[in-house]
Design a protein around this nucleic acid. Structure first.
Length: 552
RNA sequence: GUCCCUGUAGCUCAGAGGAGAGAGCAACUGCCUUCUAAGCAGUGGGUCGGGGGUUCGAAUCCCUCCAGGGACGCCA
């Protein structure tokens, strides 16, 4: 990776300068290199001299010159210059840049893979919505974020497992069961009322009708509690199937669908509670069992077991995370939660610490709310009221690729507006098509070359000296750095931005440089460049979970 | 009241201590006899919410105020 090479080069030069007494022995800051926005300042830049000036009690320019004088140019670098008030600028060597085409072609689909993670087992848990109804658009955001992170982490060399936590225990499920049973009775022409805390959505009615069609009235012959349970199970299965389908259409799949109930069946709950009890984090008062989070600096304690003896969802979460770290041995766990769970972050981390694990091994990403607009009309999503725009509807209208791209473009921290009308209206001008169009154009050139039977395998990349070719190359070689950035920051919104930059570099090259021409040698070299650009662009699209179309 | 997120071009958003603050859309001007014009080249547009502070240097860090959203249950 170029950036790392440059950083090492700089660091060695500083050490050398210190050894030779050109600059004093002072500690170095963490960040050594930046990427200058002005191309005149080279490909990489360092403001290290400015940062050292005070401690070194030297003029920054003098430091810059001292360091620069200790740099021995590697093949990657054409020149190193100093600039006031104290910058060191690195310019990559055009010949080296051109040679990266061959490197990328050799790596093929593997270009962009790193071994940053050392195969460490890492879990990404996301969506994890109660199986009580269809997913809405907010869930789509978490789904796309999670699945993209999983792809990038895998590329970065982690051993990634994706997981959906099924909240199939607790009050919400019970309300859903009873709602479904009421609709079932209604579907059979009986008088029945939806419970006051019930689910009003039409999908419950549809589901009840399906159950009647398939199973008849046999549940009426059971004692009502049994019937509710039996119908509920069928309902959950149906809902989960439809959730899985909706997600699959978005390119989101899971390695594991983990049941909350299993935590109780298989003893994880009991074991986790025993640990907390042994370590003195549990107190019983007011008829309930509490996790004494105040002992860990939290604002307040939290109930684990209610007065009626039933565990809270927090108790389930304790057992679940005990299971993740202790029983399944994940080194790192990433949870993606909606903004409405933000208040639970610190207590969750506290309890992980209380169980004996380093809380930093748990990283929780909060995705902010999505508001849907249809033109001027604001649409609020509430599952209870039944007034929702479902994820399925969104994908139907906008398409999976565009959905992924739009959601990925925003950082998880910022609330976003999704205007359905605009998304449809803008379709041809949408950046997603701009990026994919670049890929289709590349494919088209390569098809032409194939039709004409051009063998460019021995093309000489040294001919790639045109500014547009070099600009394209500069973008292409940033892919590895991008994968690293996203894997460390867990912020995939860099991907769509990079893909646009890459597409721009290609479109501009395409306009300025004829690829298949009468100049045979240049044609061969450029076909190589184009093939490498295709690899880079396709890889970027695939990391985002998008398709790379051959034609549009 | 407390805690979290956000406030950057007309709109949607990047930019997390460095060099005249960026992109897409929208607006305007040019460019198709050549591999896809879903494209390219260019123009206009900004008190980076306000005010203090730290720093050689702040959209970025600290304090404070304002505005929007979310969370503060023996709901999930």
């Amino acid at each position: 990776m170029v950036k790392r090479d440059m950083a090492r080069l700089l660091e060695e030069a500083v050490r050398d300068a210190q050894r030779r007494g050109l600059i004093p022995l002072v500690a170095l800051p963490d960040v050594l290199l930046e990427r200058p926005q002005n191309p005149e300042h080279g490909d990489h830049a360092s403001s290290l001299p400015l940062k050292l000036a005070r401690a070194a009690r030297m003029n920054p320019m003098a430091i810059a010159q001292a360091i620069t004088s200790c740099i021995q140019l590697p093949p990657q670098v054409q020149k190193v210059t100093t600039a006031p008030p104290g910058f060191i600028n690195f310019a990559l060597h055009p010949a080296w840049l051109a040679r990266q085409v061959d490197t990328i072609l050799e790596l093929g689909e593997g270009y962009g893979n790193l071994d940053l993670g050392g195969r460490k087992p890492i879990q990404v848990e996301f969506v994890s919505v109660n199986p009580t109804g269809p997913l809405h658009v907010g869930h789509g955001r978490g789904a796309i974020l999670g699945s993209t992170l999983a792809r990038v982490l895998a590329a970065a060399g982690y051993s990634v497992a994706t997981e959906y936590y099924i909240n199939d225990a607790g009050n919400q499920m019970n309300a859903f069961y009873r709602s479904l049973f009421a609709r079932y009775q209604q579907a059979l022409g009986l008088e029945a009322e939806l419970p006051p805390d019930g689910y009003q959505g039409d999908y419950v009615i549809d589901m009840a009708r399906e159950i009647v069609a398939r199973e008849g009235d046999r549940f009426l012959n059971m004692p009502p509690p049994e019937a509710v349970e039996a119908i509920g199970k069928i309902g959950v299965k149906k809902v989960l199937e439809s959730i899985a389908q909706d997600l699959a259409r978005l390119g989101v799949t899971f390695d594991v669908w983990f049941s909350e109930q299993s935590l109780y069946r298989e003893g994880q709950y009991q074991r986790a509670m025993a640990i907390l009890r042994d370590k003195g984090y549990i107190e019983e008062r007011e008829g309930a069992v509490w996790f004494v989070s105040t002992a860990l600096g939290e604002d307040k304690d939290n109930v684990l077991v209610r007065g009626d003896g039933s565990p809270t969802y927090f108790a389930s979460d304790v057992a679940y995370h005990y299971n993740k770290f202790q029983e399944r041995g994940f080194q790192q766990v990433i949870n993606i939660w909606g903004a409405d769970h933000q208040g639970h972050v610190s207590r969750m981390k506290a309890v992980v610490g209380a169980l004996g694990f380093d809380p930093d091994r748990l990283r929780i990403i909060i995705t902010q709310m999505v508001t849907l607009k249809r033109g001027e009309a604001l649409l609020r999503a509430s599952k209870r009221s039944g007034d929702i725009v479902t994820l399925r509807e969104l994908v139907d209208e906008v398409g999976a690729d565009a959905c992924r791209f739009v959601f990925l473009s925003r950082s998880a921290d910022s609330q976003m507006e999704f205007d359905l009308e605009l998304a449809k209206l803008q379709a041809p001008e949408n950046p997603v098509y701009y990026v994919q169009y670049a890929h289709a154009r590349i494919a088209s050139i390569l098809h032409l070359a194939q039709e004409r039977g051009i063998d460019y395998s021995s093309g000489d990349v040294a001919l790639l000296t045109h500014p547009a070719e070099q600009a394209l190359l500069r973008k292409m070689i940033q892919l590895e750095e991008l994968v690293e950035t996203v894997a460390l920051s867990l912020e995939p919104h860099y991907l769509p931005h990079y893909s646009q930059d890459l597409a721009t570099a290609f479109h501009s090259f395409y306009k300025q440089c004829r690829v298949v021409s009468k100049n045979e040698k240049l044609t061969h070299a450029r076909l190589k460049l184009v093939a490498a650009a295709q690899i880079t662009l396709a890889r970027t699209l695939h990391l985002m979970g998008m398709t790379a179309p051959e034609r549009m």
